[in-house]
């Protein structure tokens, strides 16, 4: 409780511990388990039929759109946090500013919605 860093030291320990634990569990499993590789076993499992070609093919562009939208709206949420903590001090002025900020993004959401970027049925 003495130094300013005291609250953070246990967090560092936790992050280290979780890494060590996550590394140790599969390592123990690798040491305990048998190791009998065979050609068939190391084929990729695709529902029993023989796999053809590389798996790293192109996939639907919708997933990229979702990723782009995620960045926009997650950054918006991040901007909301500091306001949420200070908003009693900022008062109605800060509130109005935040409404204006969010409204611009809502316009973006409506645009995306109307453009059909959120439709998954076709």
């Amino acid at each position: 409780m003495s130094t300013p860093l005291t609250p953070y030291l246990p967090l560092a320990v936790v992050l280290l511990l979780s890494g060590v634990l996550a590394l140790a569990i599969p390592t123990i499993s690798g040491l305990l388990g048998p190791r009998r590789p065979s050609a068939i076993k190391s084929m990729s499992f695709e529902a029993g039929s023989e796999s053809s070609g590389m798996a790293r093919q192109r996939f639907a562009v919708k997933f990229y759109v979702v990723a782009l939208l995620f960045i926009v709206f997650d950054v918006e949420a991040v901007f909301l946090y500091p306001w949420a903590v200070n908003f009693q001090a900022l008062g109605w002025f800060g509130y109005t500013e935040m409404v204006v900020f969010a409204a611009t993004l809502v316009v973006g959401l409506i645009y995306v919605w109307k453009k059909g970027a959120l439709e998954w049925e076709h």
Partner: peptide
């Protein structure tokens, strides 16, 4: 823990 732990080729 005791299963074989293999990586596809």
């Amino acid at each position: 823990l005791t299963k074989e732990d293999f990586v596809p080729q």
